[in-house]
């Protein structure tokens, strides 16, 4: 165990020392601040686009443009982009070392290949967690500080759900947990591809392409796509949104979380299998 912790610490230091890790942190912080500034300036106009459908009949009373809504919009926007940042760091975990020639040196350690891969995978997950923590800080805490607290108007394609302020905090905690699970799938997928390839860029690009293609398939309501959608992990990555429905469809959330967990185990298993049999030439 001590040996594993030492490898894990080493991998964590390596991950955090790389400049590209900080690019992710900087992008998340920057995008959050840009969106907050935009909503501060033009939020009411943007909101009227949503409410215009019933503005002839109803007037909406209360602080709609609050920190919870901003966080919902930011999370909804970034959950599609964040996997790219995760893949950017985790996609060359093995392949990067193979390309730079340090992999053979790494494997001269007495630790098994499985332990080395698990340490690298866990450091990737910790990076993902830090990335989400930064998102949570800016999207939720800073937004609440700027825009105030209040009921959340959750935007769904079949209507609006208004979640009362006192029911919201535990939903955010669960939503960020599901977001972490979703990004962990991406991180594990990137690590798996990294064990299969010797080029540091190819796994990152493959993850990006996969997410883009899967997301596009998810956007269209076509009978042929409906058959494959349940098998795409991107379909389940946005199951956090279901927490903001009333009543909460727990069966859908549990099913999605289970599918995400199965994806993680499957990708990790394949990754270990490939890495153990990998012919290290450099």
């Amino acid at each position: 165990m001590k040996e594993f912790i030492a490898i894990f610490k080493n991998e964590l230091v390596k991950t955090m020392k790389r400049p590209r890790s900080f690019i992710g942190f900087a992008i998340i912080s920057f995008v959050c601040m840009v969106l907050q500034a935009a909503f501060y300036q033009d939020g009411k106009e943007l909101l009227s686009m949503v409410t215009s459908q019933f503005e002839q009949v109803f007037s909406v009373q209360g602080n709609v443009l609050n920190g919870n809504l901003i966080c919902f919009i930011i999370l909804q926007t970034l959950i599609v982009q964040m996997p790219l940042l995760v893949a950017f760091v985790t996609g060359d975990t093995i392949s990067g070392e193979a390309a730079s020639g340090t992999l053979r040196f790494l494997l001269t350690r007495p630790a098994s290949r499985t332990k080395i891969l698990l340490a690298k995978w866990l450091s990737g997950l910790l990076y993902t967690l830090i990335l989400l923590a930064i998102l949570g800080f800016f999207a939720l805490i800073v937004s609440r500080w700027i825009f105030g607290e209040g009921d959340l108007v959750a935007l769904n394609s079949d209507g609006l759900t208004i979640i009362r302020a006192h029911e919201i905090n535990w939903r955010w905690a669960a939503a960020f947990f599901i977001a972490f699970l979703s990004l962990s799938v991406v991180a594990t997928y990137a690590v798996m591809l990294s064990t299969m390839m010797d080029n540091s860029i190819t796994p990152i690009v493959t993850v990006m392409v996969t997410i883009i293609v899967f997301t596009i398939i998810g956007l269209f309501d076509m009978p042929s796509f409906d058959l494959i959608k349940p098998f795409l992990f991107t379909t389940h990555m946005i199951s956090w949104r279901s927490l903001f429905e009333d009543p909460i469809p727990w069966n859908v959330i549990i099913q999605s979380c289970s599918i995400l967990a199965i994806h993680i185990m499957l990708f990790l298993g394949i990754g270990i299998y490939y890495f153990k049999r990998k012919d290290i030439q450099s």
């Binding site: 949503v50 926007t77 394609s157 209507g159 998810g218 956007l219 946005i238």
Partner: peptide, 12 residues
């Protein structure tokens, strides 16, 4: 009340 899937990013 209804919004487009594109606007809500409600893929499910």
């Amino acid at each position: 009340f209804k919004m487009s899937k594109m606007m809500t990013a409600d893929l499910n």
